[in-house]
Design a protein around this nucleic acid. Sequence first.
DNA 1: TAGTTTGTACAGAAAAAACTGTACAAAACG
DNA 2: CGTTTTGTACAGTTTTTTCTGTACAAACTA
Lengths: 179, 179
Amino acid sequence: MNGYDKLLHARKRIMESITQNIHLFGQPPSAGRQYSMLFFENKPMTLDDMSEELGMSKTSMSTSIRSLAESKLVERVWERGVRKDLYEVNDDWYQNFIDTFSLRWGRSISLHLSAIRRSQKELNALLQDEKTDEEVKELAKQDIEKLDYIRNYYNWLERLVDAFEDHEIFDIVPKNNDD
Amino acid sequence: MNGYDKLLHARKRIMESITQNIHLFGQPPSAGRQYSMLFFENKPMTLDDMSEELGMSKTSMSTSIRSLAESKLVERVWERGVRKDLYEVNDDWYQNFIDTFSLRWGRSISLHLSAIRRSQKELNALLQDEKTDEEVKELAKQDIEKLDYIRNYYNWLERLVDAFEDHEIFDIVPKNNDD
DNA sequence: TAGTTTGTACAGAAAAAACTGTACAAAACG
DNA sequence: CGTTTTGTACAGTTTTTTCTGTACAAACTA
């Protein structure tokens, strides 16, 4: 095995590692191969480049690169004289992590909080209503308590997301570690 | 609609919200229905209870409850005189979040770090070797630099996971918020 | 303007994940 | 000890996701 092959071998290990974990960023497998290829490629690539390099359809490249771009894992770049779309990796992995984290959990948080608000309103109405059975009232009380708990949890999660987004998190877990 | 139906309606909204987001905990949809049912049920349930209540196969209940238990989202409890396995939700949602977070990212971290270590070793060997082409050496240098960057990132992520696991995170994002 | 080139919409194929039903081993019971 | 109950392994089915190939609209070129 010559030097260049050894280099490729070392790269390939990392590429597979990335590919196997891209699902943590909500990306399909092909996006993982694509991302890891772009990571080692030192210049921006076109859809046709990627298609050829990975031996996959151009359609597939198009959809997965869009998914990667929406999650800000890759970026479109412009180069004079080049008509095709060019893409390269967004190389701030810390920010990538933060963006993905807020996106994934943020959706869940707002969905839950609005559901909780509505249900608590209904349950409170049930408590106020004198026509409601005592047993049902008892259950409603229990449910309201449970919803109070998870509402507090989601509030915490919301503040956690904020702490990531405004980089407060780096105060307790700093980036720089020279070990 | 009578009082009890209204209660169930309010519950159902929350249950669907939970079901739709259970994938964030790496759980299949059926586990979501199961979990949310257990959440409102005020006593532990057996596989047969769940199967009947959800109208799903017992096999399905068995596999998804195991998945939930492995992620510590539910717990097996014991009750005298009851032969069947009984399950109830683990109601510390903060800890659930932390456990899932560490599990999901922890796997990725150790996988990546070991891949990086190996590849960096190979690339360094390539640099030392006088038989290696200059061009290849140049590429190797670039790759080592890239791997240094992501190694630092994964070290950060590892410390982040630690900060969650030992609850340091509650220092900057405290649980108690009485709004 | 006509002729290319380029990205993506859409329909269908292939692969993966989720779920079901049967069968059976292990445990509990009497 | 034999009988019954209980959870799960496994094979097969359904559903969902991922990927491909064709077709076409928009953008660029000359």
